[in-house]
C-alpha cells in the first residue's frame, strides 16, 4: 500500500500507528499521536533511552528536536494529501525549559503552505501548555500531488 493510502486509512480509523510504522526513527524514540477534534497532539512518553543529562535527569535536546521535526512531518502528511514523505530543508529550535523525564506533548501549525515548500511551527510542553519547553520552526520540501 502506498503512503497516501496508509495516511487516508489512518485518518478514517483515527489510529495513527501505521503512519509511524513508515518511519523507523519515530518508533526508535517511541512517539505517538492523538486526535482531538481537528487537532493533532503528538506525544513522546517518558523513556529512559531518550535521556541526555544524567544528573537532572533531562531529555536529550536532540531527541526533543527529532520529536518536533517528526511531529511536523506527520502533521503535514495528515493535513495534506502528499504522495511522499516531506523532506526537511531546515529546522531551528529554541529551548525554553529543561525537558524532564516525563511525557512530552507537541502541536504543529502550518504557517504557510506553498506549492513546493511548507513552513511549519512546532510547540512542545510537559506540565502546562502555557509553559512551553521548546518551540521550533522548519521548512519542508514536498512533492507536488498534482504532478
Amino acid at each position: 500500500m502506498d503512503l497516501l493510502s496508509i495516511v487516508k486509512e489512518c485518518r478514517n480509523n483515527q489510529m495513527y500507528k501505521p503512519v509511524f510504522d513508515q518511519i523507523p526513527y519515530a518508533q526508535f524514540i517511541g512517539m505517538d499521536c492523538k486526535q482531538f477534534g481537528e487537532e493533532y497532539v503528538f506525544t513522546l512518553p517518558a523513556n529512559e533511552n531518550n535521556l541526555g543529562n544524567p544528573t537532572l535527569p533531562a531529555i536529550h535536546g536532540g531527541v526533543l528536536g527529532g520529536f518536533l521535526e517528526n511531529s511536523a512531518i506527520i502533521h503535514l502528511l495528515l493535513k495534506l494529501d502528499i504522495p511522499r514523505l516531506p523532506k526537511t530543508i531546515d529546522f531551528s529550535i529554541d529551548y525554553l525549559r529543561a525537558g524532564f523525564h516525563k511525557e512530552t506533548y507537541a502541536i504543529c501549525e502550518i504557517t504557510r503552505q506553498g506549492r513546493r515548500a511548507a513552513n511549519v511551527s512546532m510547540y512542545a510542553w510537559q506540565t502546562k501548555k502555557s509553559e512551553p519547553i521548546a518551540v521550533a520552526r522548519a521548512h519542508f520540501l514536498m512533492e507536488d500531488p498534482n504532478k
Binding site: 513508515q22 523507523p24 526513527y25 526508535f28 535536546g61 531527541v63 528536536g65 521535526e69 517528526n70 529546522f91
Partner: peptide
C-alpha cells in the same frame, strides 16, 4: 543503523538523528 532511518525507500537517516549528532 536501520533503527534511525527516516525514509525506508531511500534508507536515508532521519533528520532527528542527524540533529542529535549535531547537537551532541
Amino acid at each position: 543503523s536501520q533503527k534511525i532511518v527516516g525514509d525506508i525507500e531511500t534508507g536515508a537517516l532521519h533528520g532527528g538523528a542527524i540533529f542529535t549528532l549535531a547537537d551532541q
